[in-house]
């Protein structure tokens, strides 16, 4: 035990001088931090695309990673309210507490959609600040990347120039890719879709799609068969061309409705790692646009 403690203490300065430890709450921010940080950062993604970011266990491994982090990159807007506070309380890492430079919330630099008109739990899992699934619009990714670059430079001034260079290069590639996606997705404009959870309002707003139905009766509330039947009936008067769900969500409600309505159900990757093609931010949107185009009539 004593030897372990001594070796840990000797090891502390080494940890301090290693690459910047970035704790990303979600895979999209992990991918962005890697684009901007390159070799100057060591990125840990706390969740995967197959996990529901609203419901994460405050696991010991996450506390251990947060203890080592120099920078936390999270969505904010209450997305992580069920687990992030527990991690922050138990990790004893002052550098990443809210209000310190080591705490970065992506939703703060993005205009949020779907601000609830009524703040009441009877409305389900509503987020007071607005819908937190901001990364499904690539223009938001660019906004966050600019703010994150500034933050990286602030925390790690020695590598500030490198962050800026990578950020500029990323912005050029990203803007070109965004223009390409917009051009390809032009035929999708005005397309009616149904979504399982309100995971995609930013994607839909960006591409000009219309959300005519949501499968969940209230945000975060699992749809019952009775409610799905009502949605199916509603779709007969306002038809949707497809049902969208995120990869981490249960396939059952979307598949059931799709079969009932005779329309395709798409499992969009939602974030980086959501399927084999979505291995980075570019792949995420390539695959999302491809899937939408393929399913569009």
């Amino acid at each position: 035990m004593k030897r372990l403690l001594v070796s840990l203490i000797l090891w502390l300065p080494l940890v301090a001088h290693a690459a910047l430890n970035v704790f990303a709450c979600e895979p999209e921010w992990a991918a962005l931090a890697k684009e901007l940080g390159g070799d100057d950062v060591k990125v840990y993604a706390a969740t995967t695309a197959l996990q529901d970011p609203h419901r994460i266990e405050a696991r010991p491994s996450l506390i251990a990673q947060m203890r080592r982090a120099n920078l936390l990159v999270c969505t904010g807007a209450e997305l992580e309210i069920g687990w992030l506070p527990v991690l922050l309380q138990n990790a004893n890492n002052a550098a990443v507490l809210p209000g310190r430079p080591g705490y970065f919330e992506a939703s703060r630099v993005v205009p949020l959609l779907d601000k609830p008109a009524r703040l009441d739990r009877a409305e389900g899992d509503v987020h007071a600040a607005g819908n937190p699934h901001i990364h499904t619009d690539p223009r938001n990714i660019l906004r966050v990347s600019e703010a994150l670059t500034l933050r990286l430079a602030e925390i790690d001034p020695a590598n500030a120039a490198a962050y800026r260079t990578r950020s500029q290069a990323f912005a050029v590639r990203w803007q070109a890719a965004t223009a390409r996606w917009e051009a390809r997705a032009a035929p999708l404009k005005g397309l009616s879709v149904a979504t399982q959870h309100k995971s995609f309002p930013y994607l839909l707003a960006w591409l000009g799609l219309r959300e005519v139905a949501v499968l969940e009766p209230k945000p975060g509330v699992e749809p019952s068969v009775g409610h799905l039947a009502r949605v199916a009936a509603q779709l007969q008067t306002t038809p949707a061309k497809m049902v969208l769900r995120a990869a981490y969500q249960s396939p059952r409600p979307a598949d059931w409705l799709a079969q009932r309505a005779g329309i395709p159900a798409l499992a969009l990757p939602y974030t980086v790692g959501g399927n084999d093609r979505a291995q980075d931010l570019f792949g995420l949107f390539d695959d999302t646009i491809d899937q939408l185009l393929k399913a569009a009539p």
Partner: peptide, 12 residues
């Protein structure tokens, strides 16, 4: 008084 170790394995 509590101490969390800066290790990959969680230790407190």
């Amino acid at each position: 008084l509590k101490w969390v170790a800066p290790t990959e394995l969680f230790m407190e």
